[in-house]
């Protein structure tokens, strides 16, 4: 009996995500970002979430649903990401004041370490050594080891309960293809999470319609697919302005 992975709505696809879940959000500067699933969990209202992503959402406009909005909505206990502040000191992330007031916890992780911690979680590797962040404040008090004359920092795998990702194409078996820079963290998060929910841009194809040689995320990692409806009901990537003013 084939499993049905196709869900009719985002609300249905996130309905059973419990309070306290650890959720990874794909995306990097737009492409691959699961705006529709983020909006759905905002409306669903799960609380005490741990959110894993590259950023909590930028200072750019127009603002799309992001982790910063979940923080504003009182749904987040902790974020794990590569930025808790904007790259330009003159910009402010919507998230930052909540963090500074102590209303949400944050674990700041170098981007490559974040990616590798997710990859490790999906690949059954509990921890690894990396040269990144050695000699910095992030390494203070933590375990390091000299291997072949170079110092490395111990980092642990980062498993997730749920991953929200966006893909270009999918088939009914859950096989995914990303287009261009959409790929970013999405395939890694798909392997690291127990429940993978995907918002899909193109019509979901019958199983067998995608070439097995050109699958980026195999369907064995994917449990739920939702086709993004046309705007305005569905949220599509929009051209963004460089910074909020």
């Amino acid at each position: 009996m084939a499993r049905n992975k196709i869900f009719g709505s985002f609300a249905e696809a996130v309905a059973d995500i419990p309070d306290g879940a650890t959720i990874a959000f794909g995306g990097f500067a737009g492409p691959g970002t699961p705006y529709n699933l983020t909006k759905a969990i905002l409306e669903q209202g799960a609380k005490r979430l741990t959110c894993i992503a590259n950023t909590t959402g930028g200072a750019h406009q127009p603002r799309m649903p992001d982790i910063g909005m979940l923080v504003e909505n009182g749904q987040v206990a902790k974020v794990i990401c590569a930025f808790t502040a904007a790259t330009r000191p003159t910009d402010q992330l919507p998230f930052t004041p909540y963090y500074e007031r102590g209303e949400v916890e944050a674990e700041l992780v170098p981007q490559g370490t974040l990616a590798e911690r997710l990859r490790a979680a999906g690949a059954g590797i509990p921890a690894f050594y990396t040269p990144t962040a050695v000699g910095t404040e992030l390494a203070e008090g933590r375990e390091t080891r000299v291997i072949n004359g170079r110092e490395y920092l111990l980092e642990y795998a980062l498993p997730c309960d749920v991953a929200f990702i966006r893909a270009w194409r999918a088939d009914a078996a859950g096989n995914l293809q990303y287009r261009l820079a959409q790929r970013n963290f999405c395939p890694l998060m798909a392997t690291a999470a127990k429940l993978v929910v995907v918002e899909v841009e193109e019509d979901i194809l019958p199983a067998g319609a995608l070439d097995p040689d050109h699958i980026h995320t195999p369907g064995i990692f994917v449990q739920r697919l939702v086709k993004i409806p046309p705007a305005p009901e569905g949220l599509w990537t929009v051209r963004r302005q460089e910074r909020a003013r």
Partner: peptide, 20 residues
Amino acid sequence: WKLAGQLGGGIGGAMDLAAC
């Protein structure tokens, strides 16, 4: 990645690139 007195900061890929 971090200004004086700032809580947290913006690392992005800078530490990986700088180290490697």
